[in-house]
Design a protein around this nucleic acid. Structure first.
Lengths: 242, 242
DNA sequence: TCAAAAGTGTTCTTATTACACCCATGG
DNA sequence: CCATGGGTGTAATAAGAACACTTTTGA
């Protein structure tokens, strides 16, 4: 443990998988790189962590510089650090994902944002660095999280219809849900407030608007409530064991 | 993005929460520090990541140097990187946990291992650095993981009784389980092989020995099987919402 | 013969699934 | 009056929870 100086030659970055939901589709905000390495490739927004900056702070900074948003749901997922992952040296990256209401998203005038664009998560391919892998890990995490925490609401406007909520879950979970069962389950949690307002200007019967009752959720949490939207567990291999 | 050199002044370490199970109790392997900082405090085994070394490799190295073990279950949990967490400079640490069969554990002659000792997880307190927080995060992760993956078996000898398995789950989940329901559920998964051998030399009716059928688990996985040992979901706050 | 842990089924309750029709609006 | 999505209930099935006594061994 003598010459520790040798170890202080590395750098770390944060990469932020910024999810949004629009047109029934789960999106991710990507930036087209303007320089080498990986010039002209799409990449996750990210940057080096400053020496006096906490990791979460760095992830929030990256998000804020790009979108102008603050107070956004943010979660660390995993750190990627294989030796050859960055051409400039030993750079490990701490991956985060954030959930933004896409309607709040304002393109910032900053140059970095000029080349930002929402991409469908399902179609995002061929990203710079190991960003495919990072995106995948964050998407998997979101899939699990959305069943066990009420984070889906972070992606919707404050007032939403049950069908919008269902479509959000379907997009994240990549599955179809039964309308009646979904409504029964989500309403039985008593975490949605019926706003007694209606959709307007739609060419069909207008839907009721709801909002998520965060205060009630926090009360329930304190009582030991566990949010749970899990689906059926496939049972396989029912042969008799001996 | 010009003077990137400024960023290459950080270091990263791995810390490894090594869990074992013995005497019905979940243990963690800690090392008494021989130097400053935190001299004479108990700490998680960890070390700097070498510049040509992957993160997982570093975590395995730390484990192997201490215990002589290889091929051990290892999982990255989270990266801890608040600015002031290390007195020597900006050092972030990638936290891992591993699961070892405590019976395989051999104290290595290496000097580092002389001061290693198993501690009850429930009583491990007042650790060096931010290691309390790291231990806690890894324990929480293990709690969740053990319900959704058959990782518990990593902590048991190859042949075990159902009661030992139940006690393991009870120790990790910090709860009591019903014997009949536990057996029904775990046996219904068809992942245990009844070895038709018995415990010997116990002062009571000897129990049957089982082993975990890893091959069968992998077959089931490929068919879409989901391991699940979840407990009841507490329902709270059933007032009628309006 | 006692102490200690092994082993075993049933009933009740709760949660999950599958499923089809009428309603309200805008164009 | 048509197209579009909104909104609703029930019956069948499956999973989870609660619960007590007999068996086998060593001391």
């Amino acid at each position: 443990m003598t010459d520790l100086g040798n170890f202080f030659k590395s750098a770390f970055t944060v990469d932020n998988v910024i999810f949004g939901f629009d047109e029934g589709d789960l999106k991710v905000l990507l930036i087209k790189r303007g320089e080498e390495p990986y010039k002209d490739k799409w990449a996750l927004p990210g940057y080096f962590v400053y020496s006096e900056e906490d990791l979460d702070t760095a992830a929030k900074r990256v998000l804020n510089e790009l979108t102008g948003l603050n107070n956004v749901y943010l979660e660390q997922v995993r750190t990627f650090g294989t030796v050859g992952r960055h051409p400039l040296g030993r750079v490990i990256t701490i991956a985060y994902y954030s959930l933004v209401k896409i309607s709040d998203y304002m393109l910032q005038p900053a140059s970095i944002a000029r080349k930002a664009k929402w991409h469908s998560v399902a179609k995002a391919r061929d990203l710079a660095f190991d960003h495919n892998e990072i995106l995948d890990a964050c998407f998997q995490r979101l899939k699990r999280r959305v069943r066990s925490r009420p984070v889906g609401f972070e992606l919707l406007p404050p007032k939403f219809t049950l069908t919008e909520l269902q479509h959000l879950y379907e997009a994240i979970l990549e599955t179809e849900l039964d309308k009646r069962n979904f409504r029964k389950k989500i309403l039985s949690m008593n975490l949605l407030v019926n706003l007694k307002e209606m959709q307007e200007g739609v060419a069909h019967r207008p839907a009721r608007l709801y909002k998520f009752d965060r205060k009630k959720y926090e009360e329930f949490l304190a009582e030991g409530y566990i949010f749970d939207l899990s689906e059926s567990k496939k049972k396989v291999g029912k042969q008799i064991s001996d």
